[in-house]
Design a protein around this nucleic acid. Structure first.
Lengths: 365, 365
DNA sequence: CTGTTAGCGCTTTCAA
DNA sequence: TTGAAAGCGCTAACAG
């Protein structure tokens, strides 16, 4: 079928080994034969077979990205970034979707290693630490977005404590005192950290924490809807809701629409994580950007670094740092408004998006 | 590092070939050795090396999916479906993102073939027909969503003519006579076909086609916004807009929000292609579902069929059919309303989502 | 039913 | 600087 190294060697009347050396560019051939071989290879349309090469070298030019799904905009961005970066370097991306299921993660992991992937970026479920730890002996691994506490793998995380803090503080600065929080499961890094940032901002502002305002659950629209109802049904409902994830935000928006609650007139809404349509939505949804693009880029950087270090067998490329944080930032759009601290939370229905200008400047980092 | 077939064979005191036969389950070994080998392999934690196997068999257990991006919800769904189906069969998915760029597509294609992928599902740009045609000699290919007219590759398409027809007819049945269309570029299959379906529905209803109501452009929010403005600025603006793609719909929604045009009170909006948040948006956006999930499943079916046929070398598995269509269906939500044919298009602002019940039953297919 | 032998296409000793 | 030869881990004739 295709042109092999042997064909090239024959055409050039040299041995395969010479051909190999010339084409892989080890300076172990004479300048002349080198160039000649390159030319002939091109003429013949020779393309090295990565499989054969891999069998010998143990490499595959394949890098895997394991994420939970493609519904989440952050994961979409990450997949696109990782793909683009790797392609530019001649790697192909194996995209795996684990659905946040430990069993699926475990299975996938072994198959990936079977395929002799050269590197792995994984959003861990947190339940396969031992396996990850073992695999990391063979292949460079970088964890993304979540840490697997059972490992000390290099991990690239969003600065969730800071992001949640910034968001909450922003709402406080706008005059909100009762701020509802819809946050993720507390057995994930991000769930815990976002809660902690929220709590810290309240504490600093001298606002008492009210557990009736805090709800944790899965990152799905249903959770958002359920929690929003609970919050709004409170005797003293919050004047602002901070939703720590974009899927849940969909649920919240539905509830507010159903109940004809104007945003930001009756309720301010702040969301953690961006999503393309938040900008197009009216009112445009203010967010705390988790920096998905930066996270992915950093993860790729770190992975490449480790892959490189492994190749040169100079240490494991860890650089001594185990955890990287990518800063979150507040992006103000139109879903939060300044309220008069003395007025009741639920004012008259109306006063549409005009809060933009009145909003405080971005909190300093 | 890992356990090889040789290790298993030695442990079992048989030759590697026997071990191979036993483990690959060709009925060419005695029941006893077969089971013994399987047991020993398991005990040793043997995992076959796909690279080595691939070198011999020419297969890789890798299937590639080449799409334009991951921003589009249809592509997200397709990627998830393809990934899930393939994983269940022991294949890994190589996800490539071509950005609808012919050069990128071409490059990717060659790399994929280098990697000896076992199959390819591709959303073609339409500019690399010759290359695709050539590659299809070596590897089973199924085109998805778009046809590459320069080839006669098996192609799985949405039934865009029908979908656009259904959508348009639905609007007509609701009493709309001036229906704006924001459609895709006319050099793509879907762009042309969606326009044709629209035109056919108008013709059947005896409504004259008005080119001022038809705008074609890229599938991006900006296009939607620009076209929406043009449509709404018309001396006689449309009473309904049919947006032939979800990205463009974002742009349209922004414009209507900016101008305080109530949907569906002042304007009915129908969108081609679903997106998770359309359902959560208020008013929930009515759509023509292109059946992304079905498309992906069918593409996988066809690909597997061809891969299978190729393996058994019984023909090319084409079954004589070159083109498959997956039916589109209308999903009514709350963004279209019945209008009084005699009333002016722009009525008083208000009358929010209550058109659901009054909407006509789904057009029959 | 099983073992022996020969590669798949490439890299990499080891000699020359 | 080059060639010959070995071998990565596996499968598949071909004998026995």
């Amino acid at each position: 079928m295709s042109v092999t190294l042997k064909d090239v060697a024959q055409a050039a009347r040299v041995s395969v080994s010479t051909a190999s050396r010339a084409l892989t560019g080890t300076g172990l051939t004479s300048e002349r034969t080198q160039q000649r071989l390159v030319r002939i290879a091109r003429e013949l349309g020779y393309r090295p077979n990565p499989i054969a090469r891999g069998l010998k070298t143990g490499q595959s030019r394949l890098v895997a990205l394991l994420v939970h799904n493609l519904t989440n905009a952050s994961f979409q961005v990450m997949a696109e970034v990782v793909q683009a970066r790797l392609k530019a370097l001649g790697y192909q991306m194996l995209l795996c979707i684990g659905g946040d299921d430990p069993q699926a993660e475990s299975d996938t992991l072994t198959t990936l290693v079977d395929h002799r992937i050269d590197g792995l970026i994984v959003v861990p479920t947190g339940k396969n630490g031992a396996q990850l730890e073992t695999l990391s002996k063979d292949v460079p691994i970088v964890c993304l977005v979540r840490r697997d506490d059972a490992t000390d793998l290099e991990t690239v995380l969003a600065d969730d404590p800071q992001g949640a803090y910034l968001g909450t503080r922003h709402l406080i600065e706008l005059g909100h005192k009762r701020i509802g929080l819809i946050v993720g499961r507390q057995d994930t890094t991000s769930g815990r950290e976002r809660l902690s940032g929220y709590v810290r901002a309240l504490r600093e502002a001298g606002i008492a924490r009210d557990d009736a305002l805090i709800h944790a659950g899965h990152y799905v629209p249903e959770t958002g809807a359920t929690c929003a109802r609970k919050l709004l049904d409170l005797p003293r409902p919050p004047s602002a809701i901070f939703v720590a994830n974009h899927e849940a935000t969909l649920g919240v928006l539905r509830v507010t629409a159903e109940r004809h609650i104007a945003i930001p007139g009756d309720l301010s809404l702040l969301c953690y994580e961006d999503m393309p349509w938040f900008e197009w939505h009216r009112p445009a949804i203010s967010i705390v950007d988790n920096g998905a693009r930066d996270l992915a880029n950093l993860a790729v950087d770190r992975l490449l670094h480790r892959m490189d270090a492994k190749g040169n067998s100079k240490g494991n490329g860890s650089d001594g740092v185990r955890e990287y944080r990518v800063g979150a930032r507040l992006i103000q759009r139109d879903s939060c408004r300044r309220i008069d601290a003395t007025a009741p939370a639920r004012s008259a229905k109306s006063k549409p998006s005009s809060s933009k200008s009145s909003a405080a400047k971005s909190a300093k980092v």
